[in-house]
């Protein structure tokens, strides 16, 4: 690591808290959606997609592990404990990723919308002044190339199939849209993250970058995009406002840990 970069000196205490919060947002989002994706293991519509989608799920969990590790290096505690052992109230994931999968159409639509969100968040992170984040984002983004291609191709195929597939996607989009705002809640330290160059973008900029990508694509496929901006359900617009489904997800994820916390090791 270069001696002249900010990482060599380490972030200040205040920056550290802001950074940890950002890293936990990114990690929790990827862990929770990775877990949701993995729920299709064995029951995806076809065997090839079952394998492909599970692999994507593992990638997402791997990205989460990378962010937890960075948070751990900043003194947030053991990475595995961060992943498995935090109660709902301390989680920083967005309600958007916590919702149950629903049908395959809703899974595909969420995959598409989330990957586009990750792209804009990671794009900002690749310009981060904190080099460990900048480097991590650059690596993760290379892996996300495939995810984006997969999610877009799948959405296009399902949408163009018309009929029931299109109707289910349309329904999914309406279901998911109110939760989109939760992704763009960058937390209580957003202004500081921006001012210090750790995350050189604000929520509004990320959201308009995201809309510039997804809205034309959805329109082209024939979806009526819900009105953007102020119509989001405010109850779901903050990262603290977790979806009730998160608690059950965490219980499943912690099943082994809860049997014998002392014996659980990774």
């Amino acid at each position: 690591m270069a001696q002249d970069d900010k990482a060599a000196r380490g972030p200040s205490v205040a920056e550290g808290a802001a950074l940890v919060d950002l890293l936990l947002q990114m990690a929790d989002d990827d862990l929770v959606l990775g877990h949701r994706h993995s729920e299709w293991l064995g029951v995806a519509p076809d065997i090839e997609e079952d394998v492909a989608f599970s692999s994507i799920a593992q990638d997402e969990v791997g990205h989460a592990a990378l962010y937890y590790e960075l948070a751990s290096q900043l003194g947030a505690g053991d990475a595995d404990r961060l992943a498995f052992d935090r109660p709902v109230g301390e989680r920083r994931s967005a309600a958007f990723v916590e919702l149950e999968n629903g049908d395959w159409a809703r899974t595909a639509m969420r995959h598409f919308l989330y990957d586009a969100f990750e792209e804009v968040r990671l794009d900002a992170c690749t310009r981060s002044g904190w080099q460990p984040l900048q480097r991590a984002a650059t690596k993760v983004r290379r892996e996300e190339f495939y995810h984006r291609l997969h999610s877009r191709t799948q959405l296009h195929h399902l949408a163009k199939a018309g009929g029931e597939a299109f109707a289910r996607l349309e329904h999914a989009l309406a279901d998911l849209w109110p939760y989109v705002a939760s992704l763009f809640d960058l937390g209580p330290h957003a202004a500081e993250l921006r001012a210090t160059g750790v995350l050189p973008a604000d929520a509004a900029a990320l959201r308009s970058a995201w809309e510039a990508v997804v809205v034309p694509e959805l329109s082209e496929l024939g979806f009526g995009v819900p009105a953007c901006g102020g119509t989001d359900a405010t109850s779901a617009a903050h990262r603290g406002a977790h979806h009730p489904a998160l608690a059950e997800l965490l219980t499943t994820m912690r099943a082994v840990l809860d049997v014998d916390a002392a014996a659980a090791s990774w």
Binding site: I47, E48, V51, A52, Y146, H150, T153, H157
Partner: peptide, 20 residues
């Protein structure tokens, strides 16, 4: 071999089925 709905999807699933 993979089963797929299109050449594009075949490429995508083949990548994960054989090159994870």
């Amino acid at each position: 071999t993979v089963m797929a709905a299109s050449p594009e999807m075949a490429v995508l699933v083949a990548r994960q089925n054989f090159l994870r």
